[in-house]
Design a protein around this nucleic acid. Structure first.
Lengths: 246, 246
DNA sequence: CGTTCCTTTGAAACCAATCAATAATGGTGG
DNA sequence: CCACCATTATTGATTGGTTTCAAAGGAACG
């Protein structure tokens, strides 16, 4: 829970009783190896959320023709599975794609949060709204830009998310996605992704050594991609002073 | 407010005091002609939500190169602007594209809902989660299907949303978007949209007379598009019995 | 009745998908 | 430790969906 609290605390410090409530919500800790399918879309009942302590997950949907789309990447501090909550059957799959530690968060506990700790509930709402804004950005990127811009945006998104829990911005990091997964995330085939990555190397935008890649030209990646870091833009002052303690 | 209450009531009936709370939240009624820009993305402060009583709005984002993407269409009963709430500056624009009656919903009132009527707050959260699921679907559609499937999906989406507040499914309705707007919504140019629409006429999938179009082959549109009506799938039983009255 | 916005059409260029095959990589059991 | 297998990365040739550019025809509105 530390990562989550650190993240939320950075934005709007929790009161002691809220922090207690928060810790009480996520009960079961679980270590999940790469490849674990936490929720099978169109099949499982979505009876819980997941809080990411460490590692990485992604949400994806499958079409009947076998095509897959990765709609969102999740990192330490994220709450995963919001889009499944109000349905009988999960609308999307949740997969661990880098060894992760997560906390299970039963749907019923969410109700407790709404009843007893409204400020915590407001934070949940806020992060659902944040997720909304990020999905909007992804729609704009995929719907209105070409492959190069999308790939640049994905690289910056991953860099931004990893750096959220680091003391200073680090240009070197593990991408952690196969080219096929990258394709699913930005709406291209793996073949095209490979060609684009290759062109990024040639243009000296990024460099690769083993699993890690290093951003060489941050400026130009930003210009290419139109990427916004919504986590950075977050502003929770609007409900900071308005709640009385319970 | 009637449309909103009808919609929410259909899913999970509100108690009298909750209904009162709900009505108290949205204060100002406003009639907005087609073309009204309610929120200017990257400019306005998002100090309110909008509840749609009648008419249609859309959310859009602009890229620095002038391209526009329409990320979501809104109809009677929808709550609009969730993705802007937790930011200092709005992340997306909100535009009226068919004469609308809306209720203004100050952000501060949302806090009251969380504090005093947790069940109402839970409904807000639920609908943010629903919005999430719908945006996911749009991402899959735009990222992993071709123009024909996307157009078919958009037609079915509009039909489904209009039919939500009608007694029975009606195959004839007003599309209400220019071909350029359709392009912004499904990630194509207006030129390509025109060609696709034309091919739909030739294949007798839909027919047009003036402003209204009629679905001729619902079955095939469904097969083409992979469209899910998430409003139909909604299930709020998970918190139906768990709240005590305030 | 002209202006403006929207629709429609054609031709050429381009980005990305598809098809097909080979090379690299990583993990496994013998 | 090495041969083997499965997955991932890479490359070429071809096809096709979509954009771009350009222009003309319709429809709506003051």
């Amino acid at each position: 829970m530390e990562t989550l609290l650190a993240k939320y605390g950075r934005i709007t410090p929790l009161r002691p009783e809220e922090e207690t409530s928060f810790r009480g919500l996520a009960m079961t800790r679980r270590e999940c190896p790469t490849g674990t399918l936490l929720v099978a879309g169109d099949f499982d009942e979505p009876d819980q959320l997941f809080v990411v302590e460490s590692g990485r997950l992604f949400a994806s949907s499958e079409l009947s023709n076998g095509e897959r789309a990765i709609t969102r990447l999740y990192f330490a501090g994220d709450i995963v599975g919001t889009a499944n909550i109000p349905f009988e059957i999960a609308t999307q799959s949740i997969t661990v794609h880098r060894d992760a530690v997560i906390y299970l968060f039963p749907r019923q506990r969410l109700i407790d949060a709404f009843r007893y700790t409204p400020r915590v509930a407001a934070i949940f709402y806020t992060f659902a709204a944040l997720e909304n804004a990020i999905l909007n950005d992804r729609l704009v990127s995929i719907g209105r830009t070409r492959g190069k811009a999308r790939l640049a945006g994905l690289i910056l998104e991953i860099a931004a998310r990893l750096n959220l829990t680091r003391p200073q911005f680090e240009r070197e990091f593990v991408l952690g996605l196969t080219q096929s997964q990258i394709g699913d995330a930005i709406g291209l085939t793996e073949v095209q992704v490979n060609r684009l990555i290759r062109s990024f190397y040639e243009e000296r935008l990024v460099r690769r050594s083993g699993e890690t890649i290093k951003i060489l030209d941050l400026q130009r990646l930003r210009e290419m991609s139109h990427f916004h870091d919504r986590y950075d833009d977050l502003d929770l002052n609007w409900f900071k002073d308005d709640f009385q303690a319970n």
